[in-house]
Design a protein around this nucleic acid. Structure first.
Length: 270
DNA sequence: CGAATCTCCTGGAGGC
DNA sequence: TGCCTCCAGGAGATTC
């Protein structure tokens, strides 16, 4: 899955398209997360691209008038080609955004992503409900504490909740909680302010490490050079059910929390 | 509002 | 080798 760091990398790669003028949007297969609306997307025609930004895992193409918002879901890939150097269409190439100089090609096998046109950003529910970025000043211990101290939901689900903080996926949540010695089952209102300081700190560290490790946590992901992504790095608890805890040798427990597999050490975490 | 559950979809993995 | 089943994964939708 493209994690936050990877989406940021993609965003940087797309900067070459800034100042281009969009000539055409081709939709080959419209059934993504939201049905693609060719008619609306073609409102982008003849629009100059002013900038390309990122919010959570959304890529946002700012045009003279209106925006195109792209989410990669879990298997989405965006590749930018020079116009005179475009490869053959392959399976799951659902969308091309063509400009005078480039083609931005969207490929998504599992179709959890989206490509949406909107005249303005403020009306977009998917962006309005997002919590702060994990590296922003807004995401601090006091903020986190205020968001979770009234909640009866397990802490793991809370830090994975985009309304609380964006960019913390399943693996990061498991690893961060282990490093904080907090059980994923602990109810939000039983997490102390002190622990929130730790959590904010550790989440940022874990994400930073993921950026350094580079790339996706998808099991089978390899980057352009064939290197395995973050998923293959040595995890402390994630995917280690029944294996010994690296701290205390207790077997790692696996449970189901909010439809997600969760791993923790019943001895180290409480 | 909050909480719990369901859903979308494909390809890889593991079982036989 | 070839089926078959199971599963991951983000986030909106639904229900209570």
């Amino acid at each position: 899955m493209p994690e936050l760091p990877e989406v940021e990398t993609v965003k940087r790669g797309l900067q070459a398209m800034v100042e281009d003028t969009i000539t055409n949007v081709i939709v080959r297969f419209p059934r993504l997360r939201y049905p693609l609306d060719s008619e609306k997307l073609n409102l982008a025609q003849n629009q100059k691209i002013l900038s390309i930004s990122r919010r959570a895992k959304y890529l946002i193409i700012h045009m003279e008038s209106g925006y195109i918002i792209i989410h990669l879901g879990m298997s989405g890939k965006v590749t930018l080609y020079k116009k005179n150097d475009v490869p053959e269409i392959i399976k799951h190439d659902h969308v091309d955004i063509t400009s005078n100089n480039h083609i931005l090609r969207y490929n998504d096998a599992r179709r959890f992503g989206c490509v949406v046109y909107s005249p303005d950003l403020s009306s977009l529910e998917m962006l309005n409900t997002l919590g702060p970025e994990p590296f922003s000043e807004e995401f601090n211990a006091e903020y986190l504490f205020s968001k979770i101290s009234t909640r009866k939901t397990p802490i793991k689900q809370l830090i994975m909740d985009n309304a609380v903080v964006v960019g913390v996926g399943n693996i990061y949540a498991c690893e961060s909680l282990f490093l904080c010695k907090i059980s994923p089952l602990r109810i939000g209102n039983e997490v102390t302010l002190d622990e929130c300081y730790k959590l904010v700190n550790i989440i940022q560290q874990v994400l930073t490490k993921a950026i350094a490790a580079g790339g996706s946590s998808l099991r089978d992901y390899r980057d352009a050079e064939g290197n395995l992504g973050y998923f293959q790095q040595s995890h402390l608890v994630y995917g280690r059910a029944k294996k010994e805890c690296k701290e205390c040798n207790t077997p790692i427990t696996e449970i189901r929390l909010g439809q997600r597999n969760s791993f923790y050490c019943p001895n180290c975490q409480s």
